[in-house]
Amino acid sequence: MELLQDLLTTFNFIVQGLWVTVSVTAVALTVGLAIGLVMAVARVYGHPALQLAASAYSVVVRAAPVIVIIFILFFVISRYVNLPPFWAGALALGFASGAYQTEIFRGALQAVQPGQMIAARAIGMSRLQAIQSIVLPQALRLALPAWGNEATLVLKDSTLVFAVGVPEVLRRAQQVSARTFEPFLAFGVALLLYLALTLITTQALRWLERRYRLQI
């Protein structure tokens, strides 16, 4: 009975961080999506200088540990602009994820048959129109499985914002464990919450994949 009571209090405390975890992940994925799409289009269709800039971003950011990027935003950038820990963490994660998403979308753009672009140009579309209306919609569908994988990775990387004091699931679990000396219970609950979030995310993305599957 006491165990159940402990479990409930522990759960109630940690679950308050769920919304923070979800928000950090959603912001990071959205920022990463915007960066990734722009960079991938620049990589594949951009002016050579733009291609170089985009691949430099991708190489440098993928080489940097995510935690280092978070620290740079939190300790360095936030000296010049007012960045609360939540935003420093979420934006840093998005910036990092953007590099991986760049690679995902680059591969997808390159996997679209060249004939699609040619046919779009042949009916009088500009390059930009062809990218927007023909190539990107197909590339997004091709990218979905890899993007879903990236989403689960970002979800787990969201634990890193713990280091700058954002009260997300892991941080709250650690707080509980420090108070109750029941690390197994605390981290067990955290683990289950991540498991639940991952399952929901993968199911949602699988549904999207089925809904928008390209028939070739």
Binding site: A120, Q138, L214
Partner: peptide, 10 residues
């Protein structure tokens, strides 16, 4: 009109 049709697959 192309040999390989090039219809927009989506």
């Amino acid at each position: 009109v192309f040999q390989e049709f090039n219809l927009f697959t989506h």
